[in-house]
Design a protein around this nucleic acid. Structure first.
Length: 227
DNA sequence: ACATTAAATTCGA
DNA sequence: TCGAATTTAATGT
C-alpha cells in the first residue's frame, strides 16, 4: 500500500478517479527500489504489475533480430508502463533496466483489472496512453535507420517529454548526458555534441545534470524528420 | 582519455 | 551553523 501523497504525486491519472477508486488503487500498489544498473525484468519474464516510476530513470529496450540492443523508450518519474503485458497477461517483450537508483510503484493485476472494469477515468487514461505509445513506436520503427546522432538524441528526449505519456513532467528533466547516451545508443561524447547542436538550434537548454525544453513539438519534429 | 568545472560533502571553528 | 576545503560527479574537448 502506498500513501495518498505518493500516489497523487506519481500518478496523474489518480486525479481522474473517484474517491472509492482512489482508495482501491492505493491499496493495490506497493513500492519497490532498484539499484542503478539492476534489471527490473528481462525479456520473456512474467512481471504481473503495472508500474509507475516514483523516482529515478528506467530504460525499456529489446534485442533486434540482428542481435543488437535497441532502446525503445526512457521512462522518467511519473511515467507508467506495462499495461500491454498486464492486459494480455503475457510475458514481457522487452528488458527493463534501472539506469540509476529507482523506486517503482507496482500495481497488482487484480487491482488493475478492477479499475479497468469500474473506472471511466482510468480507462480514459489507458486509451490515451496506449494510443500515444503506438504512435511513438511506429514513428520509431519508420525512422530507425534514418536518423543521425542529433535526431536520435532529440527523439529519445521527445519520448520522455511527451506530455501525453508523462503529463507531470513539464519542461525540465533531471538527466545526465551519459544517461541520454545510454537511451540513444550513443557515446557520451557524441551525445554531448548533439546536445550542443540542439541547444544552438534553440530547441533545448543543456544544464548541468538536466535538460530544459522550450517547446515539446519542436523537439519531437526534430526527432521525426529524416536525417 | 584527460582537463575542467560544478555540486555535494566534510570538517573546523 | 557557516563557510572553507576536499571529494566526487558531470561536462567539454
Amino acid at each position: 500500500m502506498v500513501s495518498l501523497e505518493v500516489l497523487r504525486q506519481v500518478a496523474v491519472w489518480s486525479r481522474e478517479l473517484a474517491t472509492e477508486e482512489l482508495e482501491r488503487a492505493r491499496k493495490g500498489i506497493s513500492e519497490r527500489a532498484y539499484a542503478k544498473g539492476a534489471f527490473i525484468c528481462h525479456q520473456g519474464d512474467r512481471f504481473d504489475s503495472w508500474a509507475g516510476v516514483i523516482s529515478g530513470l528506467v530504460k525499456l529496450s529489446t534485442v533486434s533480430d540482428a542481435g543488437k540492443q535497441v532502446s525503445l523508450a526512457g521512462l522518467a518519474a511519473g511515467a507508467w508502463f506495462g499495461e500491454g503485458s498486464v492486459l494480455k497477461s503475457e510475458a514481457r517483450r522487452y528488458d527493463l533496466v534501472a539506469l540509476r537508483d529507482t523506486r517503482l510503484a507496482l500495481m497488482d493485476s487484480a487491482t488493475f483489472f478492477w479499475l479497468y472494469e469500474h473506472s471511466v477515468g482510468f480507462n480514459r487514461f489507458l486509451v490515451r496512453q496506449l494510443n500515444e505509445r503506438l504512435a511513438q513506436f511506429i514513428g520509431q520503427v519508420e525512422n530507425e535507420r534514418l536518423l543521425d546522432a542529433t535526431g536520435r538524441v532529440a527523439r529519445a528526449l521527445a519520448t520522455m517529454f511527451n506530455p501525453a505519456l508523462n503529463p507531470g513532467l513539464g519542461t525540465h528533466l533531471s538527466i545526465t548526458q551519459e544517461e541520454i547516451g545510454l537511451l540513444s545508443g550513443l557515446s557520451r561524447q557524441v551525445t554531448n555534441q548533439s546536445l550542443k547542436t540542439l541547444e544552438s538550434a534553440g530547441i533545448l537548454r543543456a544544464e548541468r545534470g538536466g535538460i530544459a525544453i522550450r517547446d515539446w513539438q519542436d523537439l519531437r519534429s526534430f526527432g521525426v524528420r529524416q536525417g
